[in-house]
Simulated assay, not measured.
Amino acid sequence: MSDILWPAGFVPGFTDNFCSNEVIVTGLTVEEVWPFLNIPTRWPTYYANSADIRFHDNKGPELEAGVRFYFSTFGFPVEARVVEHVPPVKGQPARVAWHGWAGEPGTDSRLDVHHAWLIEELSGGRLRILTQETQCGVPAQALAKAQPNPMINGHQDWLNGLVDAARQATLA
């Protein structure tokens, strides 16, 4: 199975917080799931922890390499820039990742994240959806200690909602 490509400064184990969530399902393809992830304005329709999505520089509605966008999640207003974007191509995993940030640089409120997604077909008609996020900053240190873990639980909700939304669309 494939893994996430980590940029310098965001490698798990060397950051203040890390979370990893994954599902493996049948009955869906990468092409059926991709639009629900790649079009952020769809996120709030299946993931209640996302809101206020907007694009910068007259871009959107789809993510693409280098595009800047904004959304709110986990109580943070997040500015983000897509740093990896590989749409579905037969025989390779689809990938999207962004660097997100909140707060002023150099302050205790600053949070920097690398949030990555990987969608790949597996043998036997299975589909794997992996999302991982690393975080740096004082807010990340607090999130890492929180019980239950809001990042693990929130990202699992996102995955479950993504799968459910794609399944509903295939039935329509």
Rank of each mutant, 00 (worst) to 15 (best):
M1I: 11
M1L: 13
S2R: 08
L5H: 13
W6D: 03
W6H: 07
A8L: 11
A8V: 10
A8D: 15
A8S: 13
G9D: 05
F10G: 06
F10V: 00
P12E: 10
G13C: 10
T15Q: 03
D16W: 07
N17H: 08
C19F: 08
S20Q: 11
N21I: 01
E22G: 00
V23K: 05
I24P: 03
I24Y: 09
V25F: 02
G27E: 04
L28C: 05
T29F: 06
V30P: 07
E31I: 09
E31V: 14
E32T: 04
W34R: 08
L37C: 01
I39R: 12
W43Y: 10
Y46V: 05
Y46H: 14
S50W: 00
R54F: 12
R54N: 12
F55D: 06
F55W: 09
K59A: 15
G60M: 03
P61G: 12
L63T: 08
A65N: 12
G66V: 01
G66T: 01
V67F: 03
F69Y: 14
S72M: 03
F74S: 09
F76C: 03
F76E: 06
P77Q: 14
V78R: 00
V78I: 15
E79N: 13
A80P: 00
V82W: 07
V82E: 00
H85P: 02
K90Y: 08
G91T: 12
G91E: 12
A97F: 02
W98S: 01
H99I: 11
W101V: 10
W101A: 00
W101M: 10
A102R: 06
E104A: 15
E104Y: 05
E104F: 13
E104V: 13
P105F: 09
G106A: 15
T107Y: 09
T107L: 06
D108K: 13
D108P: 05
L111W: 04
D112M: 04
D112I: 02
V113N: 03
V113I: 15
H114R: 00
H115A: 02
L118G: 03
I119V: 15
E120I: 12
R128W: 10
T131H: 07
E133I: 01
E133P: 02
G137M: 04
G137A: 10
G137Q: 06
A140D: 00
Q141K: 15
L143A: 04
A144L: 07
K145W: 01
A146N: 06
A146W: 06
Q147W: 03
P148T: 12
P148R: 06
N149L: 11
I152A: 11
N153V: 06
G154E: 08
G154V: 03
H155P: 01
Q156E: 14
L162F: 02
L162E: 01
V163D: 08
D164K: 15
D164T: 12
A165D: 03
R167V: 01
R167L: 11
Q168L: 14
Q168E: 14
T170S: 15
L171E: 11
L171C: 07
